[in-house]
Design a protein around this nucleic acid. Structure first.
Lengths: 308, 308
DNA sequence: CTGAAAGCGCTTACAG
DNA sequence: CTGAAAGCGCTTACAG
């Protein structure tokens, strides 16, 4: 045992009377080696007895990268999407002997570089990445991807007879904003709806109310707000209340990416629930370079409450 | 340059015509060495030109631990406390050439062990740690710590004439629950108030309403709810509304650890804002074993809105 | 079937 | 003031 108190490969080798190489072969189940069952047994037991745990840093130095995947998260984690995505990613990674580490609000390139230099992670991911490739969405995306979820939101409004719909957007751009806008517009088009209007709903509460009042004065025919996310939906609800408008009678509001707060507002918020656990698992497998066979994203679903 | 395309210490040594040791001494500003200004200059320049970046993994293997601090977060990050704490921790760490990595929902010991084995972080922290030591709070805690913030909440209610106060608690225990309860009770005692009642406010919304109705039937003299956090306060607000009770006329409600949602409810939520950035910085310095001189936690403050 | 050796990139006694 | 050497703990050609 080294000075550090750590049990090393050398200890296991000594205890089982073989070389370090052999121990490594056995413990990593190296398919290119043929180790006798007896030796294998002896090594495994010694490792077990000694409580040997491979030193990730040493392994990383040798292998070129550590068994870590870093996820950059640059916005809130309130919604169901983020939570479930992180859970799926974490679990799938764990099943393949890797660990997930999250980095908040630092997706600027130089910070990422620093992370790379410091721990040489196997991969650096970014939350929502798959959703924000610039490329055109595939038909799959319209089946069960981001585009489908955007369409679900617009469609629900259309199902309830709304034709003049406005997109309620946050006051500063998220990486996802552009893609989302495009999907929603396309969904409206496919549905035979006129182009969606746009309204930015800023904070604080009074500013949100002022923005909505001004918007409504210019667009009196709009009857429904499709919010970028549940946060914006909540801001809209508060604004409409302050303006003395009834929801959904005077104006319907639908959220996106369910948060815990939607059920607590009055009226409770109708929204889109997105379970991204499978997306997280797929991201994990992609990062590790293993197949994603059989894993298909779960389509979003409407959580019908009282605001539409 | 190695096969990996990485510029190593050896490259810098070659380029500047000195040994690797000397390069290391210069770059790390080793105080035990005296390097001539000329050599120093030459090395720095070569490193700069080549774009040398030390390999964190190699350094970690040599030094015994990597320049990483891991923070375990096992509950939401909605509140101002978590956000500001993480920001402070991150920034202070960055200023000392370390990086922060967050781990969500995995503070079980064996997972922590795995992280340790994999990246040998300098330290593994846990959000709220400082707040949940079992030990008695010091007088400092009553000055500007968790205890003080708990007292601030109760005190604000007392200032508004409330004497019969109930603590609104979450339906499952957080690590902090015990400590918080104790502080609040002690604050009430110091304030000359009778012991605080306790009520658990569960989800979903209907269950919360039922719980509060039952509670009020048993404790008709209670006039104010001091919530464990803003989430519980929001549940309480929704429940009271469903019961047809007016806030604050029939029942006052005060939150804790401001979230973005408090301003959007009706009535808007009065709460305690806790800026934990300095706490994060102190935690960073403690983790790195450097002095925290001059850093004092910022006391919380009341955000007065409409619910008290 | 197994072992001796090289090497990942760094830091730091140690010797000059 | 500077350099040669050891060593952190591992994996993997290579040789037997």
């Amino acid at each position: 045992m080294g000075r550090s108190g750590r049990v090393t490969l050398t200890d296991v080798a000594k205890a089982s009377g073989v070389s370090r190489a052999t121990v490594s072969f056995v413990l990593n189940d190296d398919p290119r080696q043929t180790i006798s069952a007896a030796t294998r047994e002896r090594v495994m037991e010694a490792a077990q007895d000694l409580g040997y745990v491979p030193h990730g840093i040493a392994r990383a130095l040798r292998e070129g990268s550590s068994r870590i995947v870093v996820l950059n998260v640059d916005w809130g984690m309130e919604g169901n999407f983020s939570r479930s995505y992180v859970r799926g990613l974490d679990e799938e990674l764990a099943e393949h002997d890797h660990i997930l580490l999250v980095r908040h609000g630092h997706s600027i390139p130089e910070a990422t570089q620093k992370v790379l230099d410091t721990i040489a992670p196997r991969a650096v991911l970014r939350l929502g990445e798959a959703y924000m490739r610039g490329d055109e969405p595939t038909e799959d995306d319209w089946e069960n991807g981001f585009a489908a979820n955007a369409a679900l939101q617009i469609g629900y409004l259309a199902d309830h007879g709304h034709t003049r719909i406005a997109l309620a957007m946050p006051d500063h751009d998220f990486p996802l904003t552009e893609a989302r806008l495009g999907f929603s517009q396309e969904a409206a088009r496919r549905r035979g709806l006129p182009p969606l209007e746009r309204i930015v709903v800023p904070r604080p509460r009074e500013a949100g109310a002022a923005a909505i009042r001004a918007f409504l004065a210019a667009h009196p025919d709009v009857t429904a707000l499709a919010a970028f996310d549940d946060d914006i939906a909540q801001r809209s609800l508060a604004a409409l209340r302050d303006l003395g408008l009834r929801v959904p009678e005077d104006m319907a509001v639908i959220g996106f990416d369910e948060t815990e707060y939607g059920s607590l507002s009055t009226p409770a918020l109708t929204t889109v629930h997105i379970d991204a656990e499978v997306l997280g698992r797929i991201a994990a497998r992609n990062a590790l370079g293993i197949g994603t066979g059989g894993l298909a994203p779960v389509p979003g679903r409407i959580v019908a409450r009282a605001s539409v």
